[in-house]
């Protein structure tokens, strides 16, 4: 991309976000009895206290992981939506280690996170394997696998980790050594955010500076060219899915060990889906993932704060996310302007 085109993409993304926020405002105006208050809470609520800023950062952590995971998988043009299941299932794997094992601090969470990552990579690797072996659509199989992850995961918790004394269907408490430490006082922001930051750097280096990442990107742009060049496309496809799954599985484990005392999810937490939006906003570029994750986390926390003290439900975030996806995916959105820019460049 030339510089001006890259600028154009930034401009386009910015405009998409602006439009979706404007639509959000309109919805608030139409629905709410107290639109002024609702808007204020939605837009600046996340900044009005350390606790709220902490909330945004906490929310960013899982989105960073799933956003990176999806970016890697999508970079190979594989539309694997298994990040959701890998996140959930990775967390369940970590829960087993956090409940049942006794290890020194630092080592305990490290082992749990790696184990969760491993489970995530198997989970996302299978749709990749099915794709290269039998050409079955990774989109469909990964969606199916998410259901398997959900039901099988709950089964495992229920039969092997359930604390019968607790009122709800939750696991036993995690061993204290397994937990990630909090790093900002008066918030729940935990060590996981630092791991996430490191992962952003590692993933960017992996995609842009290693031969494996190079192969993944070549496959993602033109798989026939990759094959012609002698790249083992099957292997690179599976690698991209395994790595994506690993990151998602790590994310699930970290979220669990940083934020909870027991495994208590009753539903798929949805971070994998949001990760898809993060990746789309970031154009599958790990470097932009933090920006996209911050934006989405901010919006969610804003909506959350708003819904707690006004009559606006926070589900309306889903509408905004939907609009963002549609506008960004619509390649023809602003294509006239883009063409004008090209024409101007060519004429000059």
């Amino acid at each position: 991309m030339t510089k001006s085109q890259r600028l154009f993409e930034v401009y386009r993304t910015g405009l998409v976000i602006l439009i979706s926020l404007l639509i959000a405002m309109v919805i608030i105006l139409l629905v709410s009895e107290e639109p002024g208050e609702a808007m204020k809470l939605f837009l600046i609520g996340p900044l009005d206290s350390l606790r709220h800023i902490g909330n945004v950062l906490e929310m960013m952590v899982p989105l960073l992981f799933t956003g990176l995971a999806v970016s890697v998988m999508f970079s190979a043009s594989q539309f694997n939506l298994g990040a959701e299941g890998a996140f959930f299932f990775g967390a369940i794997g970590a829960a087993f280690i956090a409940v049942n094992w006794n290890l020194p601090p630092v080592i305990h969470p490290t082992v749990a996170i790696l184990w969760g990552g491993l489970i995530g990579s198997i989970f996302c690797g299978i749709p990749g394997l099915l794709k290269v072996k039998w050409g079955s659509s990774e989109l469909v199989s990964s969606l199916m696998f998410n259901y398997i992850a959900y039901f099988f995961g709950l089964y495992l918790i229920n039969y092997f980790l359930r604390d019968v004394n607790a009122g709800a269907m939750v696991s036993h408490r995690f061993v204290e050594t397994s937990k990630l430490i909090k790093i900002i006082p008066k918030t729940r922001v935990h060590f996981g955010i630092l791991i996430a930051a490191v992962m952003v750097v590692i993933t960017a280096i992996f995609l842009f500076r290693t031969r494996w990442g190079y192969r993944i990107r070549v496959i993602g742009t033109n798989i026939r060219f990759a094959r012609y060049s002698g790249i083992n496309t099957d292997r690179a496809i599976i690698l991209s899915q395994v790595i994506g799954g690993f990151i998602a599985g790590m994310g699930g484990s970290i979220e669990l060990l940083g934020m909870y005392r027991r495994f208590e999810w009753q539903y798929l937490p949805g971070y994998g889906w949001t990760g898809v939006i993060v990746a789309i906003l970031a154009r599958n570029n790990p470097v932009y993932v933090p920006v996209a994750a911050f934006f989405l986390a901010y919006m969610r926390i804003g909506a959350d704060i708003m819904s707690r003290s006004t009559d606006m439900p926070n589900e309306f975030v889903a509408i905004i996310q939907g609009i963002i996806i549609i506008l960004i995916a619509a390649t023809s959105f602003l294509s006239k302007q883009r063409h004008k820019m090209v024409v101007k460049e060519a004429m000059s």
């Binding site: 070549v218 742009t221 033109n222 026939r224 060219f225 990759a226 012609y228």
Partner: peptide, 9 residues
Amino acid sequence: MTYGCAADL
């Protein structure tokens, strides 16, 4: 265009 290059890289 099909085999000889990845046009977007």
